[in-house]
Amino acid sequence: MTYDTTPRITLRGDAARYAGLTEQILEAVLDAAEADEFLLKSRVARFESALTDALGAVHAVGCASTTGAVLLALNALGCGPADEVVVPAWAPDALFSAVVRAGARPVLVDVSTEHGAPDAADLAGVTGPATRAILLGPAGTAEVRARLHEAALRLGVPVVEIGGPEPRPARAAGVTTVLPLGPDDLLGGIGDAAAVVTDDDAVARGCRMFRNHGQDPQVRFVHHHVGFNCRMDESVAAFLLRRLPELEARSTRMRQLTDRYTRALRNAGADLVVLGPGPCLSPRGGLTVRTALRDQVRARLAARGVESAVPPFRPAGDRGMPDAFPGARRLMEEALALPLHPGLAPEDVDLIAATVAECHAGLRETR
């Protein structure tokens, strides 16, 4: 006898998110093919313009991936072999690889176990004359990010962050935001993609050149830099243009679900901390919590048909420095991603929160 072990409540809700979109996907692909435009042409330009309008930004530079977008931003800021870039000790490997590919040296800073991002007060101790940029991953609430931006501004160091779709008419000075646009992200594209969002003319111009092998944005085959191929596909841009009007509603829905989770988990116990979905509001990362009962919680959720995951962040402790970054080490051992996506039903949030609370109630009873 075999049993169906497919979760009823999935982490990202991918199947439900793309149900009914077949015609839109085919239309986007056929539109680009019939126009004989496949890379970095009119649909990409229209999407960039529409995205700047939606976010209240000056520039949006479409590119092929989130990792590539981070590298573009670092290149545009002039990062090179003599430079250092501050990176959270608990972050995706892609951030570290982007810094190394830019030729700079990553300088690690520990993270808070209360929100998963560095504390603003710790930035001064890891920056110096060689610091070219501070790189922030997807962790940290809007309030935490604001404090980090203020600290970086005082230090005179620009920030590159994996950020979210929040409209920011008064954008933080010196901050370049990378907005993920892949299939697992908020809009849900049909291929890997991202955008660099900035109000800095020089950063935008640099990103536009570096994404196309260092080529001048206006004059073909005139190359100012050694760049690489990080161009956005036309069919991807065409599909994202169709999805963009849903951005505000999807963002609102994710915030509502996060608030519901937070209220439901509030009484789960002192051993559980809601780290939040971060500014990306992305289904990719789910709602991240810290719990000393991670294995027990995962097992009980799985028994009820709920998918969960350990965030794929390796702390600096796995890079040969086991005692230098206790916050990162603890999050590696206790962080857990719970389902969070725009299609998640409120009653599913309540079920998940109740299951987590049961585990913590059992721990309190044994004390």
Rank of each mutant, 00 (worst) to 15 (best):
P339M: 01
R319G: 00
L344M: 10
F239R: 11
L287F: 08
L363P: 02
D185C: 01
A133N: 01
P129S: 06
V99S: 04
D201Y: 08
V159H: 09
D185H: 12
P7E: 04
A345G: 02
R300Y: 06
N212Y: 06
H223T: 11
L301T: 09
V44S: 10
G305D: 03
L21Y: 05
I162V: 15
V310F: 00
P315V: 02
S112R: 00
E48L: 04
R12S: 11
G285S: 10
V99R: 06
H115C: 05
R260Y: 02
A139H: 12
V236H: 13
E246W: 08
E248A: 14
V203T: 11
A73M: 07
A353C: 01
I352A: 01
D199W: 05
R266G: 07
H224I: 04
M321Q: 11
A15S: 14
A76H: 06
I162N: 04
E114C: 08
R105C: 10
L241K: 05
V58T: 13
V160K: 03
G320H: 07
G285K: 09
E166H: 07
L181N: 07
A76Q: 07
A28Y: 07
R243E: 14
T141R: 05
A104W: 10
G182D: 15
V160T: 04
L55S: 00
D122M: 07
G276Q: 05
W90G: 04
G182A: 14
S42C: 06
A98H: 01
D36W: 07
A237L: 10
C359D: 05
T258V: 12
I190Q: 01
A28S: 15
D31H: 13
P118G: 02
Q24E: 13
R171V: 07
T113W: 01
G214Q: 06
P277M: 11
P312Y: 09
R171P: 05
A102P: 02
A249V: 03
R243N: 00
D4P: 05
R46D: 14
N75F: 14
P165L: 02
M232C: 13
G78V: 06
V196W: 00
F221V: 10
V175I: 06
A121Y: 02
F210K: 04
I25C: 04
A133C: 03
F38D: 09
V289N: 03
A316R: 13
D53E: 15
A238L: 05
A54F: 09
L240V: 07
L155S: 04
L108A: 15
A73K: 00
C207V: 10
L275A: 04
A324I: 08
R255W: 08
A117P: 15
R253G: 00
L26C: 09
G320I: 12
